[in-house]
């Protein structure tokens, strides 16, 4: 087994790379400023806005968020790495979240997760090769009365049976919520940007060679 180490020699961000946050996104982030006493408090909304627009928040986006909020980029990384909701590498268009907490487990979430794994042919935290789906598990989704539950992007699917998974994942409208949306946060981007800079996290880990 070759030793793998995080590459700290080469810079993570290309200094000459063009901006990836559009003016509209920046304006949206700024619209949260009047709500709070400090600009840093708008960080969580900003991360939501960027993740909704780009699909994930990479290092370049973190740096640009830091510029807008006037805080060090390391603070953005510090906060972002704490929360499980944010992705620092490309995720699928739709994220399938299977609840694995006690109520759901007692009602059979293990079988649901297994069915989803087989249907998508990926492991937990994996993304399908066509970039359509990512599969994750999470602790309680607060829908224990409808256990076992599965969240597809914004839509909660209740009392899911393992044999319904196949149909559910083939349905193109499985992430549409029935309630009127508020315009405060956008829908997660349909097409996640496929930028070469957005390689998965493993690209930061390079094999160290003797050279």
């Amino acid at each position: 087994m070759a030793w793998q180490a995080v590459d700290r020699i080469h810079p993570v961000i290309d200094k000459d790379a063009p901006q990836i946050l559009s003016d509209a996104v920046r304006e949206k982030i700024r619209s949260f400023f009047p709500r709070y006493e400090t600009k840093r408090a708008a960080l969580l909304p900003a991360l939501h806005v960027v993740q909704d627009a780009l699909g994930h928040v990479n290092h370049q986006a973190m740096k640009e968020i830091a510029e807008v909020l006037e805080i060090p980029p390391s603070d953005v990384l510090d906060t972002m790495s704490f929360y499980t909701h944010f992705w620092d590498h490309a995720k699928g268009e739709k994220v399938v979240v299977v609840c694995r907490s006690l109520s759901c487990q007692l009602m059979g979430s293990d079988a649901v997760l297994q069915a989803a794994r087989e249907e998508l042919k990926i492991e937990e935290h994996g993304t399908t090769p066509d970039g359509k789906y990512s599969l994750v598990t999470e602790e309680c989704l607060a829908a224990c009365d409808h256990a076992p539950c599965v969240l597809v992007n914004e839509k909660m699917h209740k009392r899911v049976k393992p044999d319904q998974i196949s149909k559910l994942l083939k349905d193109a409208k499985n992430d549409e919520i029935t309630f009127p949306r508020s315009s405060l946060f956008d829908k997660p981007a349909k097409k996640a940007t496929a930028d070469p800079a957005d390689l998965p996290r493993t690209s930061d880990v390079r094999e160290m060679k003797e050279s």
């Binding site: 408090a41 969580l44 909304p45 510090d78 906060t79 704490f82 499980t84 909701h85 944010f86």
Partner: peptide
Amino acid sequence: HRGAGAYVCGEETGLIESLEGKRG
């Protein structure tokens, strides 16, 4: 204010930290 998936942010001071844009 929307959180981002952390159980400990339900603790009152964790919630306050998170609202300030820090780790919870």
